[in-house]
Write a protein that binds this DNA or RNA. Structure first.
Lengths: 240, 240
DNA sequence: TCAAAAGTGTTCTGCGTACACCCATGG
DNA sequence: CCATGGGTGTACGCAGAACACTTTTGA
């Protein structure tokens, strides 16, 4: 294993949508000598970077190691560098014990966020998906990191095609609608919402409809990224 | 002097407006033993942080020490952590020589941007204001940092009251207009521009007009920050 | 036949945009 | 009296917002 850089870490705020609400991926603080520290505190997936590792690479690696997730979009969104962020003392003690050979003093963390669709397949034993409303107390400043991620997401989702990260490849208009409502915590008239989507050429209707629902089955669409970049080079606001 | 943390630095992209174009504050790379290194390379004001120093504090301190500027708004906007960013070798050699007692290996830098009005008073001997178009080659990845700062600024200035940072306390509509044109590199119809500003209650007209100009003197305004926050809590787009 | 969501159109209002002329001042 | 920018108003088109009913399916 390469040497760690004990001054800099990455933390990932992975947000998922289960067709109802927005959830964040948390993991249990690793046990020390097989014993769980008091309180079973939860944390974001994250770790110290390696000495010669690019920050983005480190974020992808960490996420994969801790959750098995890979090939998902990750975006750096903020830095948390308060000299006292490794508190309370109990949390710092835990960190020191789980990184044996390093003298941990102060760690500046680079925070990333990501969006993924939530299916049974990413509910591994290691990962806990927690609704973003009413989170429990997390380790260090992780509550604050999530809060900031949500603020940034709410701004970016209005002008970038982020919602497709939260949806399956084939999706219905209703699903898009629900994503926007869940993230922005605001409700949208479905007729007006559809009207806005109609002219968007990068929403390609498929020769396929929803199945096995006890109501009129909805048209399925896919997102065409190429068309998006072709027609939206200058576009400022995407939806709403 | 407190101990430095040789792993983390801050760099400040200070943008100024001289009523014509946007300029960025650069400083000369410090001399080594009184001898200027070859090429007289320029750099952003920035330095390593102290061991126990908050990142924002460090940015304010650094800026003050290197340029004499204080009490200006500074905002963290990105992190640059490429393991090879301290290149070319010549630049790294220079950095090592000017921070004698520290072993510099890899430095992750936290970048801040700021906006100020450009007057004779901030043109100190130490500072060089360089038009952001056609910058020379700067040290390390500083060209890239400035490019990113401009991208972010161009987005933020549309939805936040940043333009007032670039203007004197008393300003005319024309001056605001020029700021937007300079930053967004786009031209605006002056009648429509004024029309958009009319309803904004936080633009308070003063009992005072421009003086000493050889044309009809313009109304002076001030920006009322309290009114801004009162009326714009939910407002999404500010101008344009 | 019922429940549940899909899908469709019109009207009104407000905002962005295009565009031309007279006004006040200093030189 | 001239040059320079300050300051004003109107008409058009598009886009957002409000709002109700018919359709298709599974149970």
């Amino acid at each position: 294993m390469p040497a760690l850089n004990p001054h800099i870490s990455v933390d990932c705020v992975i947000l998922g949508f289960d067709s109802k609400e927005l959830k964040v991926l948390l993991i249990e603080r690793e046990h020390i000598n097989g014993v769980s520290p008091e309180g079973h505190k939860l944390k974001l997936p994250g770790s110290l970077i390696y000495k010669n590792e690019d920050l983005d690479k480190s974020a992808y690696r960490t996420l994969f190691e801790l959750t098995g997730l890979r090939d998902i979009f990750l975006k750096q969104f903020a830095v948390f560098g308060n000299p006292n962020r490794l508190s309370p003392q109990e949390d710092l003690d835990w960190l020191r014990k789980t990184t044996n050979n390093y003298q941990i003093d102060r760690v500046v963390t680079i925070a990333y966020y990501s969006l993924i669709k939530l299916t049974e397949s990413n509910r591994t034993p290691k990962t806990i998906w927690y609704p973003v409303k009413n989170l429990p107390d997390l380790i260090f400043d992780h509550n604050q990191i999530i809060k900031k991620a949500l603020e940034i997401l709410r701004n970016e989702i209005r002008s970038k095609p982020l919602c497709f990260e939260l949806l399956p490849k084939k999706f219905t208009i209703r699903q898009m609608h629900d994503v926007y409502e869940a993230i922005l915590d605001e409700s949208f008239d479905s007729r007006n919402f559809r009207k806005k989507l109609k002219p968007l050429k990068f929403l390609v209707p498929l020769q396929e409809k929803e199945k096995g629902v006890n109501h009129k089955p909805a048209q399925l669409y896919r997102f065409d990224r190429k068309l998006y970049f072709k027609y939206n080079k200058k576009r400022n606001g995407f939806i709403l």
